[in-house]
Design a protein around this nucleic acid. Structure first.
Lengths: 224, 224
DNA sequence: GCCCGCTTGTAACCGAGGTTACAGATCGGC
DNA sequence: GCCGATCTGTAACCTCGGTTACAAGCGGGC
């Protein structure tokens, strides 16, 4: 983990347009107080029961926030990319509670950590509040969607949905798909084989070619 | 559904202490613009894909917010009682999206509906914002907890957890417990029988007596 | 007392998904 | 070309939870 100079206000505003509408002195104070860190892919940024140290802004890369099962499997809750912020951190700061999920850098990631007091100060800025409220609203909707999926949808439906909307050619492994679903590799292989037998996809090493998006959509929606 | 006079500011503040710290004229305007309704238990207050009409404050009773499965089963996401507000409604109003869950009055319920503009006006009041932020934070934590439960915990663990913390004698039916877990009656009967065989509970018509809370906690935590 | 409705108990059966344990395929590096 | 690592395919087996289909218990109302 390397520490470097914070970005200037211009660079920050380019990523987070909301800061253009925040009082300039408040923004500058935050940039001054923040420290920017750069971590390699795979770094665990926080974990269950950790206290929350500050408010992270992702400048580059991506954080994967997931719940870990006792047996080591993980279910991703959501991702935080450049221009977004980690809503779970906000939640912890606001409620003064501990983290209840794990955050891992998925790529080499640069982030700017604002100390808690800075975060509190930003809450006084109406545009920043609106920004945060919208993110909260989005994540709540996403989490409710996720609850529905894991509770009611079968794995083939979830897999079909996962394959869609990423272009015709997916470059990924069965293991990665399983990780995305909170399942295991063998099951994904089995299900993909089923899809291939129906002519929905063509399989290759580290790739899945979508042959029949409509068919996959049908499975995702109805389970056939 | 009967409409009645809105409560006076005093009664409202007693339930929602946050309003004591809101500018009096803003509060009065809201009370004036709101309409108060009283609905019997079982009323569906909103459902998936409905647009959000306003911001509800629960004065009496309780709302159960749940995701419905295609086959009719439901999984409760959370409840809203007096002094709380329905975070999903806030989320819809903030994100201008549709409801993505169902809300049903669990008891005879009285609620006050604030029109959308009122809600927007209240957001300008710092104490109200803080109130809302804390609720968001709480619900997010709750939803993440729920995701973990449905994804990773077995039903006996979830049932054991459900039985705990409600006193020694539970007056409920197996069906109601199943509804709470998003499962079916037969399975709950089976699992309760298992608990009874281990001496953890004693069963009776419409009642479950907790004999060994520590044993139940052990099951809830470890699955034995 | 008798009937009806709700609640509980139970058993047989099934399917989805996870576990274990391999074997073969493919690739990059040396 | 050989070796090891990674990825994929597959089969046997198991557990959990859901489904179906009853029977019996209890309770209140008439």
């Amino acid at each position: 983990m390397s520490v470097e100079r914070p970005p200037d206000a211009g660079a920050l505003v380019a990523l987070y347009p909301v800061f253009a509408r925040v009082r300039r002195d408040a923004l500058d104070r935050c940039i001054g107080a923040a420290h920017t860190v750069r971590v390699p892919a795979g770094t665990v940024l926080f974990d269950e029961h950790n206290p929350c140290r500050g408010f992270p802004l992702v400048l580059e890369g991506s954080i994967r926030v997931a719940k870990a099962a006792p047996n080591g499997r993980e279910l991703p809750l959501y991702r935080v990319g450049p221009g977004e912020t980690c809503i779970i951190s906000s939640s912890c700061l606001l409620g003064r509670t501990e983290y209840n999920a794990r955050g891992v850098a998925e790529l080499d990631t640069a982030l700017m950590m604002l100390p808690r007091e800075c975060f509190a100060a930003l809450l006084d800025e109406p545009p920043f509040r609106d920004f945060l409220f919208s993110l909260f609203a989005e994540r709540i909707a996403g989490l409710m969607q996720l609850v529905e999926e894991v509770a009611f949808r079968k794995l083939d439906q979830r897999l079909a949905a996962l394959l869609l909307g990423k272009g015709r050619m997916l470059r990924t492994t069965h293991q990665r798909l399983a990780d995305e679903l909170g399942s295991v590799r063998e099951i994904v292989t089995r299900l993909l084989k089923g899809f291939a037998d129906q002519g929905l996809v063509a399989l290759g090493r580290e790739q899945v070619e979508i042959l029949d998006p409509a068919g996959l959509r049908r499975i995702a929606a109805t389970g056939q």
